[in-house]
Structure formats: C-alpha cells, structure tokens
Amino acid sequence: MKKLTILGILVLFVLVSTCVVMADDYEWQPKKPINLIVPWGAGGSTDRSARVTADIVSDALGVEIIVVNQGGSSGAVGTNNALQAPKDGLTWTAGAVKDLGLYKAQGLLNTTLDDWHIYTNVAMPSVISVSVDSPYEDFGDLLQAFKDNPGKIKVATAGINSAGGTAIAQIKNYTGIKYNHVTYDGGNPAVVSVVSGESDVVPQLSVEQVDMINAGRLRPLAVLSDEPLKIAGYDEPVPSIKKWIPEFVSAPIYFGLFVPKGVPEEVTYTLNTIWENVVMKSEKLEDWAAENAVVYDPVYGAKAVAKSFPMIQLDAYLKYEAGDLIINPVKLGIPRP
C-alpha cells in the first residue's frame, strides 16, 4: 500500500511537471522585447488597460513587453507606427476596437479591422461627471444648464475619436444641446481639467475617472449604459442615463491589444493560446476590472470583432450624420445599426 502511494505521487509529479512544460512551450518564443504602442497619453483608459494586460501576457510568454505612449491624431499616429513596423510580431498597438473600425472612414488612417488580429480585454462605459464644487447635483440639472447656456459649458474629452467625444455627441444627438468642446491629449488630462475647474464636464470612460470619484474630487451624474454602474468604494451606484433619456441606445466599448496581420502564423497561434488559457482566466485582470468599474470580457478573433461591432456601427453613423466622415460607412461594410 505504501509502495503504491509513493508510486502514485511520483506519477502525479511527472504529470504536473509535464503540464508546466507544455504550458510554457509556446510555438513562438521571441528573443527580443515586444513593443506595445499605446496611441494615447499616459494614464488614460487605453494606457491603463493595456499595461495590466501586457503584464499578464509578458509573464505567460516570458518576454518583456515595453509600453510606449505615442499620442496624436486621435490615436492614428501610434496605430500607424505599429501598422508600418516590420511584420515580425514584435510591435503591437492598443486601444478601442471602434477606433480601428473608423480610422479609414474619418480619413485619419488607411486601415480597417481586416488589417488586424484583435485581442480584447475589457469593455468600458462612459460616465458623465462634474467637479464636486459644481452646482449640478444630477444629470437633469446639467441637461437644463446646457439648454439654458448653449455653447458655453466646457466639455473636456480626449478628442472627437475618443469615448468621451462619442459620448457627448450621442447626448447631443438625442437632446440637441450645444457645448464648448475642449480636447486634450488623453482621457486623464481631460479628467484633471474638470477637477481643476478648467472645464465643466467630462464624459470620458469610468476607468479614467474612478480614482478622482473615489477621492471625492468628481461627482458622477450618469453612466451611458442600460443599468446603473457600481463603483467599488463609492457609496451609490451611478444612475443610467436612461433615467433622463429613456430612448437612449448605447453599446459596450471594447478595448484590447492589436497585432497587424502579416506576422508569422506562430505569433498569432501563440497569442490565441495565451488568450484562451491565461488572459480569459486571469484573476488579476478580473480584479482590475472590478476595481476600475469596467467589464471583464476578454476574447479574441471573430468573437472579439462581433462583440465590438455594435459600437462601431453606432459611432460610425453618429459621426456620418454629423459630417465627420469622408467615406460612407456602408462602403466599408458597416451597415446602419
């Protein structure tokens, strides 16, 4: 009986050891660090979600991933640098999938989703917030102020192509409000501008605002989703914008890491495996999502595109009807939602 027990332990040890080797034995074993270009400023939604995901992938792959911030032209500059880099798998980019879907329609960059391998990490909602010193106690107060002072209230975003730019454009589409759009090089500077009193309202993503909300510097008024948003550490859920605009329709904004097509097959095979076995089961990323009031939902490939596409459609026709696109979305395979 004792011999059998020892034998069983030895067999179990061999099996476990074999599994560990197999988990580390990826088809692609890069010998150099990977460059991850974040095409927005440091501290914003793309930067923060990209860094935590890069750490997870780096640990799994056993190679350093260097994050480089290259902002400009609503994300197009850094994205183009990744697109034009050698197709050796060592240069990636990050951002919202909706941006990749609309760069060409906007005339910012000649690329579409078909040019990329998509690996999402989280979905993020936009939150409408003001400084705690603001007179606006709820979104109804703010909406009335927009109507009473057309074009005077300063709305801070990371640009027309940012989630904040899309959010305030959606609200305008439903309500007809006019505002003073003040743009910054990233969501974090936009948030800081409201905290400092330089701007009045910020409609950027929850992850970009959560620290200032919990610090008592921002007052969240509404979230652009069907349900209220719970923020860890904050007393009350942020009410849905549907409380004031019942007909409001939104969609999740999926973020992730993007690898240009044309890289060797072993690169994407390895990343698919890491996403399936590591990222999609990562407690670290799941905990980070909960702490930052975003949705943990990592997927890759066709599933990632399918989940991201509703926001691409919504944003495409919002911009098209506002005259901000140079190509009809239909011509790029983006039907009206």
Rank of each mutant, 00 (worst) to 15 (best):
Q106S: 14
I213C: 05
R48W: 00
D47A: 12
M1E: 11
E266K: 13
P337R: 07
L12C: 14
T175Y: 02
D88R: 12
G89C: 06
V63F: 02
F258I: 04
A85F: 10
G78F: 14
P246T: 03
I327G: 03
V191T: 11
G197W: 10
S199V: 03
A190S: 14
V279I: 14
A158T: 09
S196G: 00
G301L: 05
K307N: 15
E208A: 15
D141P: 09
V294L: 07
Y103T: 06
V20A: 07
L325Q: 06
A54F: 06
G78Y: 13
H117N: 15
P125S: 13
S308I: 06
V201G: 05
Y317P: 03
L7N: 04
L221V: 05
E291A: 15
L36P: 10
V127E: 10
Q170L: 15
A293C: 08
N149K: 14
Y184S: 08
Y269Q: 13
K32A: 14
Q313I: 08
F258E: 08
A105R: 04
E236M: 07
G140R: 12
G43L: 09
G186D: 05
E266W: 00
F146E: 11
V259R: 08
I177K: 04
V207T: 12
Y234M: 01
E64G: 04
N69M: 08
Y296G: 07
S193D: 02
R336H: 13
Y184C: 03
A222H: 06
P203K: 01
P86M: 10
S58V: 02
L271C: 12
L325W: 09
S134K: 12
K303A: 14
S131K: 06
I65W: 05
L221Y: 02
N328E: 15
Q84G: 00
V201I: 14
A94E: 06
G41K: 02
A163L: 12
